[in-house]
Simulated assay, not measured.
Amino acid sequence: MVFFAGNLAKAKFSNQNDMTFYEKLAAGKKIDYVVIGDSIGRGSGAENESLTWFSQLEKLLSSHYNVQFNRHSIVQSGATAFEGIVKMEKESLPSDFDIAFIVFGENDRKYMSDKQFAYFYELLIRKIKEHNPDSEIVTITESCLSNQNFAEVIKTTSDYYKTVHIDMRIPFDASGLSIKELTKDGIHPNGKGYSLYAQSIFSVLEKASLNSRAISIYPPEPLHTGSDKVFTFITSIQSNNGFQYKKPYYTSLKNSDSLQYRFTGSMVGVTVLRSPNGGKVDVFIDGKFSTTLSTWWPFERVRHQYISSGLKNGEHTLRFVHSNEVKTGTVKISSIIVQTPQR
């Protein structure tokens, strides 16, 4: 199924809900859009909200097409594509949105391999299309992403699903300005840096509209197996040594406290409460050390953190041990996250 769109400013439309993003843009109709991303997705680094990339983009599009916008953000500083999927499933997406922006990669490279990232990035695109098949999707390679393997994943997946793809490293390099001039901290763009985001996105969308870009639903076959599975939250534990339960969290204040779950599947994550009082927790899968997670964050926030994937598809144990790495700190765990077949 393919939906054709173009520069149709003079056309008459009978039903606004049947119009594509480009048709609404050309006709000056209100645009509903979704941002799913990390700190750059939420505009961190801008001196004020008017200088975030999405505010500047709205201003450019409004000036050129006389349109208004309704933004829905599913964003979290430090988030990965995995967390984006979980948050998207737990939060209510608009029933009908016209365009979605995906902004991930910089954090993902810290927690997973490029192959694992490729799986979650594809799954995120498919979830968006399952929710709203005729929506446009814009995938953004962040200006700070230095890992070329992760950048290639974004480009390859974008090409396969025929999304609008924008590599923000290119306009940053071409600007003639230094990273110090374009960012707050070397990672997050400032208002000047976000103006490059807005201008680049605007130019690509304007060209797509003029060229009557077709919006297609995803191909029938996924690039990776397992894309037909959904995330499931497991709250029941197998054993507990020292954690205290106060709904909805198992809480530890002492080093060496442990909490164990049992699950079936090849992937696992965890939902924790991160806060200024957070500590660290060591994670063991089937008795073997896997990773150490931090539950510290500058303010209290529920987080869905990736742990591991590519496990043998069978039954496993997952044990959390309050780490001795820090002398103080609180660990709060509400559930683990696994994938199960879609019913």
Rank of each mutant, 00 (worst) to 15 (best):
C144Q: 11
L273M: 15
G191H: 05
R213S: 01
F202Y: 15
Y218K: 12
D167I: 09
Y250D: 06
E152Q: 13
N149Q: 13
S239W: 00
T271L: 09
R274P: 00
G226T: 08
K229M: 14
I215T: 12
S203M: 05
I234L: 14
E142N: 09
A208V: 02
K207V: 02
G269H: 10
V268H: 12
E221C: 04
A208G: 02
S275I: 02
E206W: 03
P171T: 02
K207G: 02
Q199D: 13
V153T: 07
Y261S: 10
K192M: 11
I201T: 00
G226K: 07
V153Y: 01
L177Q: 12
G186F: 07
A174T: 02
R274M: 13
S212V: 01
N147K: 10
F150Y: 14
K184W: 08
T232I: 05
P248G: 13
Q148R: 09
A198G: 01
L196W: 05
S158H: 04
K254H: 14
Q148V: 11
S236V: 10
T235Q: 15
T225M: 08
T235W: 06
V153L: 00
F172R: 07
E221D: 10
G242I: 12
T156W: 00
K280W: 01
K162C: 05
I217Q: 08
G191L: 07
I166H: 04
R169C: 10
I170P: 03
N149D: 14
T157L: 04
P248V: 15
G242R: 01
Q260V: 14
E206Q: 07
E221L: 12
K192T: 13
K246R: 14
P189I: 09
Q238C: 03
S227A: 10
S143E: 10
Y261A: 03
F150K: 04
S175Q: 01
S227M: 13
P171L: 07
